[in-house]
């Protein structure tokens, strides 16, 4: 079994010319957490994740704090919103590097790559590098688990 057999074929992506506002709108509309950023040929050049956009609301300093148990109210930060200038900025400003695999990639290799790069979704490309699908950890993990059914019961 390869990743082509378990990936989602309906993939939402955005062009590199899109704004942060457009990316956020697409994520909200489709209820998704990752958007591949593609060029004119449909080849992925990066990804925008939910956390990349939300860092506008909750800046990265937050990762420097060892814990937050002592904070019981986020006060003004709770209602803070990015400025119009920030939202109309290019999505490439918030884009991260993309890790993708080809359609015939083995499931275990794909799963190992996701673990290694701490990814929850993995873009899949065709032989000529065009985005053709997306597989989540659950898609791949469940497909691997399904193969266990072929193992017969142990004989005692």
């Amino acid at each position: 079994m390869v990743i082509r057999d378990c990936m989602k074929r309906k993939v939402f992506s955005i062009p590199a010319t899109a704004t942060i506002r457009q990316a956020a709108a697409l994520m909200t509309e489709q209820h998704i957490g990752l958007l591949p950023v593609v060029d004119r040929q449909g080849k992925p050049g990066g990804i925008v994740q939910l956390s990349d956009l939300l860092s506008l609301e909750l800046p990265d300093f937050f990762n420097l704090l060892p814990d937050l148990d002592f904070v019981h109210d986020f006060g003004a930060a709770e209602t803070a919103c990015p400025s119009a200038e920030e939202l109309d900025g290019p999505v490439t400003m918030r884009m991260g590097p993309v890790t993708f695999v080809e359609e015939n990639c083995g499931l275990l290799r794909a799963y190992a790559l996701m673990m290694k790069h701490n990814l929850y979704d993995l873009p899949v490309v065709s032989d000529d590098g065009v985005l053709v699908g997306l597989a989540s950890r659950v898609d791949i993990g469940v497909a691997i688990l399904a193969t266990w059914a072929t193992v017969g019961p142990s004989v005692t």
Binding site: P59, F61, F62, L64, L65, V71, D73, F74, G75, A76, A77, A80
Partner: peptide, 14 residues
């Protein structure tokens, strides 16, 4: 001290 300072400022909205 700086990260906690930023957190306090975020909470205060300053």
């Amino acid at each position: 001290i700086a990260p906690v300072t930023i957190l306090i400022c975020e909470i205060l909205g300053i």
